[in-house]
């Protein structure tokens, strides 16, 4: 059952905020668009909160000169043709960062469960007897490489080079598939060596932790393949480079989580 990530797990719907202003992505940002101006509004000094004493009137006076030269909010754009946001970061990207924040807590919980139960293998094989460190370090290296190819994909997407974007996305998906293939092999080998899911506390917490991470990598691979399909059929909604960047964010997150898991689970001796 896919874990509890919000539909953000799939290609984050390229949601365009329903801010006012024409939705068609076609029109190029108007030349005089000064997104910097949007920021200036935020830098109004803390005085925004009227100190005790100055009446509302006085306080409003010193603001008005600031506001006169602000263009009407309606045609406000940020650089990528998306809608202007108060913090300048696009909604989708902020949404993805928040989602990754909550995923940290999820993996934090799983890792602490593993650390508590790692020494309790009851009658089953212990961690040092069963781990095959050389193999796992190679598969970790493969996942690291997939992060590299993901970066190449994102850079070619920003350069609007569609051919290379699709290429690097496919390569990242293939490397991810290799990693997951390695994990399936590792799980089967452990099972053959007498460590099933319910053998001991150590085994069930190990399988839960690495299983969750494997599921997240698989979802990432599906997102990558879907993205390649959608780009080649021009079905990507909204700003293409940003969607690739979002998938890149997710992929790098999954990769970093694996680095943490790899060191804590495999490298630190029980």
């Amino acid at each position: 059952m896919s874990d509890a990530d919000a539909p953000h797990g799939a290609t984050p719907p390229a949601e365009k905020t329903p801010e006012h202003g024409a939705p068609d992505e076609g029109n190029a940002p108007t030349p005089d668009d000064a997104s910097a101006v949007a920021e200036k509004v935020d830098e109004i000094p803390m005085g925004g909160v009227p100190e005790p004493g100055p009446t509302g009137e006085a306080q409003r006076a010193d603001d008005s000169n600031l506001l006169t030269e602000l263009p009407d909010h309606a045609e406000h754009r940020d650089l990528h043709g998306g809608h202007a946001t108060t913090t300048g970061l696009s909604n989708n990207k902020m949404g993805m960062w928040l989602f990754l924040g909550s995923e940290c807590l999820l993996f934090g919980g799983l890792i602490s469960t593993y650390m508590l139960y790692r020494g309790r293998q009851a009658d089953g094989p212990g961690p040092d007897q069963i781990y095959d460190i050389p193999f796992t370090s190679v598969s970790s290296f493969v996942l690291l490489m997939s992060s590299l190819t993901m970066v190449l994909a994102v850079s070619s997407a920003t350069r609007n080079d569609e051919r290379n974007t699709k290429l690097w996305l496919t390569i990242t998906a293939l490397l991810g598939a290799t990693f997951v293939g390695g994990q399936v092999y590792e799980f089967t080998a452990f099972y053959r060596e007498g460590m099933g899911f319910t053998t001991s506390l150590f085994s069930s917490s190990f399988f839960t932790l690495t299983g969750f991470h494997g599921a997240h990598v698989t979802i990432g691979i599906i997102m990558l393949m879907a993205l390649v399909g959608m780009i080649s059929r021009q079905r990507v909604v909204g700003d293409k480079a940003e969607v690739v960047e979002l998938v890149g964010l997710y992929w790098h997150f999954v990769d970093i989580v694996w680095i943490v898991i790899f060191t804590l689970v495999y490298l630190i001796p029980a």
Partner: peptide
Amino acid sequence: LSGAINLIVTVLNMRTRGMS
């Protein structure tokens, strides 16, 4: 969780001009 992400982005990103 989906509600939380939604409302945080709405508050941080979609305030009208002047609403620090």
